[in-house]
Nucleic acid binder design. Sequence first.
DNA 1: TATAAACCTGAAGTAATATTGAGGTTGAGG
DNA 2: CCTCAACCTCAATATTACTTCAGGTTTATA
Lengths: 156, 156
Amino acid sequence: MTIKPGERHRQLTVGEVAARSGVAVSTLHFYESKGLIHSERNRGNQRRYSREVLRRVAIIKVAQRTGIPLASIADALSTLPQERAPTSADWRRLSAGWKADLDDRINKLIGLRDQLNCCIGCGCLSMQECPLRNPWDELSEQGPGPRLLDPSPAID
Amino acid sequence: MTIKPGERHRQLTVGEVAARSGVAVSTLHFYESKGLIHSERNRGNQRRYSREVLRRVAIIKVAQRTGIPLASIADALSTLPQERAPTSADWRRLSAGWKADLDDRINKLIGLRDQLNCCIGCGCLSMQECPLRNPWDELSEQGPGPRLLDPSPAID
DNA sequence: TATAAACCTGAAGTAATATTGAGGTTGAGG
DNA sequence: CCTCAACCTCAATATTACTTCAGGTTTATA
């Protein structure tokens, strides 16, 4: 486990990658099966990774934190050259796309929070005009028309 | 499907609840199996819902939009009286808890976005001090110590 | 009353993201 | 050389949130 002098550029075993990246060995196998990372094999069929994989795993983890599904991450990573480390430009391209996605999700959540703030204040029980209610009303209106909107007292 | 005069306070069938709430019939069955909603049965064993269920489903959907897992929603709803409609105070209590959760998630995502902004700019490949890298470094440090930090050129 | 739409139950299937286990092989240290 | 940790593959299991299916019953309508 300790790094001996002269071994710094050795390829890494799964266990080492797991320890250094913070993901389980089984997860690395899983990622490999999904094409997110790649390995070579030694003569005994054991995986050997170049250090580049650490960056890949790091990128995967950041993308996941932003809420991107693994399949999309795999798509994005597949646009990178297999056997060289991602460049600045590569990273910029990927992360810019993910940032747009993230911005979107943040904005949706903020909108939701605003609605929630409104509705916590108003009690959200009698308001026909509550923004949180509107989407539901729209759904109701897919029926026979506005007549479906509940005209009864307060509680639907 | 049309509402006839004098039927406005009738109990609702699953199909009607599905149409008005925008969730599938199977989802209503599922929610019932998880204790999120409740129904009575008519003499032919078919589900009959009070209108109160529409609000419950609406609450469930809002909570889900904020990212709360169904099991937690079920817990929260179980603190409400079964057979009366949730009051303002009930709703306030639930939604306040969810809002705190939502705030938390938003803040985390915003932090992530800031880091991403930083790292898009810097290319995130050579910076030892990149905030996005720090969590990974911490993980590395769980090993034999700082010596594990990769001292080699730029790309780990 | 006959037929079709809507409803019932319980089991199985789906998708994403892994983890766990069984059964066997490889490799590093003493 | 021996042994044990680490590795291998493939299959199964777990979780969340549902949907689909099979086979049978009820209700609404013409």
